[in-house]
């Protein structure tokens, strides 16, 4: 097999390889996207390894906490005070690695 023909998995399949014990009651990260509207960098969109930040047509940002690696990238790169409220999930919830 030559280089370039490596069968790449879809992003959904990639994230599907990870176990997440989702807390249905509480989002451990919340995004106040009124603070994002005048943000020109929006570093969270390219940097989040789980691709959880999605720009919306009206200039906001849609965020889903469910497949979060809890890595901290988003709040570290965010330059809008108060846009991202970041905590760990409740004990026992969230990402569970097995072969890392």
């Amino acid at each position: 097999m030559s280089a370039g023909t490596y069968p790449e998995i879809s992003f959904e399949a990639r994230m599907g390889s990870v176990e997440f014990r989702i807390d249905e009651d509480r989002a451990h990260i919340t995004v106040d996207d009124t603070k994002c509207r005048d943000c020109s960098t929006r570093g969270c969109i390219t940097a989040c390894p789980a691709n959880l930040f999605v720009p919306t047509a009206d200039g906001g940002i849609l965020f889903n906490y469910e497949q979060c690696f809890e890595c901290g990238t988003c709040y570290l790169v965010c330059n809008r005070e108060g846009a991202i409220t970041w905590t760990y999930p409740e004990g026992g919830h969230g990402v569970v690695f097995h072969r890392t």
């Binding site: 998995i9 990639r14 990870v18 901290g72 990238t73 072969r99 890392t100």
Partner: peptide, 9 residues
């Protein structure tokens, strides 16, 4: 086959 994807800061 990709068995697990992961990320960490």
């Amino acid at each position: 086959e990709v068995k697990e994807y992961s990320a960490h800061v």
